[in-house]
């Protein structure tokens, strides 16, 4: 009976969850203002499943499908962009809105600043080129290799797409095989099909 005191001390009170949420939100705001966060993130729902969105001060640094395992993606961000990572804040609100519009068919390009620090060398030049492939069109891996300055690096284009840190925003889904078949996709082929179908429009 008297151990009820200890139990209360250990287990806390009912109002805690809401209260902590408010404290957490204030922490993210303060930390963002004084630039002591390496990245903030949020998870949004979409027709291709839950998407993890992460941004640094420079811009959106990562978009990840659920199949990539969001926990693992965050762990990996901890070593690449830095471990001062917090959930929430407002940095990703614009991208979340643009994604909603994109999936509603009301937007063709993304305007948010992006941070490509996770890509290097040839992969980075591939991603730079992918941004130029217009909405609703596709290019083959070979065409992308040529456009990226290394016509023989077709396989390397494939791995650049497979390791794209910003899928959907940097449209690696617009790269398909020269015979018209889909090739691969880091978010799974059904997601690639859905995105290409969305961009083809209703018919």
């Amino acid at each position: 009976m008297s151990d009820h005191t200890i139990q209360l001390l250990e287990s806390g009170t009912n109002d805690e969850a809401d209260h902590l949420a408010a404290l957490h939100a204030a922490l993210v705001d303060r930390a963002t203002t004084e630039s002591s966060v390496d990245a903030t993130y949020r998870v949004v729902d979409s027709p291709v499943g839950a998407l993890l969105l992460a941004a640094t001060e420079a811009g959106v640094v990562r978009v990840a499908f659920a199949v990539e395992d969001h926990d693992r993606v965050l762990e990996s961000l901890g070593t690449t962009v830095g471990s001062r990572i917090l959930r929430g804040g407002h940095r990703l609100d614009p991208l979340a809105r643009e994604l909603d519009d994109y999936f509603a068919g009301a937007r063709r390009d993304f305007d948010v600043p992006i941070d490509l620090r996770l890509a290097h060398g040839f992969r980075l030049s591939v991603l730079q080129h992918l941004k130029e492939i217009p909405y609703g069109t596709t290019e083959s891996y070979g065409q992308v290799a040529v456009a990226s300055g290394s016509p023989r690096a077709v396989r390397a284009v494939g791995s650049a797409c497979a390791t794209n840190p910003l899928p959907i925003v940097v449209p690696c889904h617009r790269v398909v095989r020269s015979d018209g078949s889909l090739g691969g996709y880091l978010g799974g082929l059904p997601a690639k099909e859905l995105l290409l179908g969305l961009e083809r429009g209703p018919r």
Partner: peptide
């Protein structure tokens, strides 16, 4: 620490609040 800081807040935020209140 290489783990995202968010994990520390999730795992220990409630306890630290209780400690501060105590």
């Amino acid at each position: 620490m290489k783990r995202p800081f968010e994990q520390a807040v999730t795992e220990h935020g409630a306890v630290v609040l209780r400690v501060c209140r105590s």
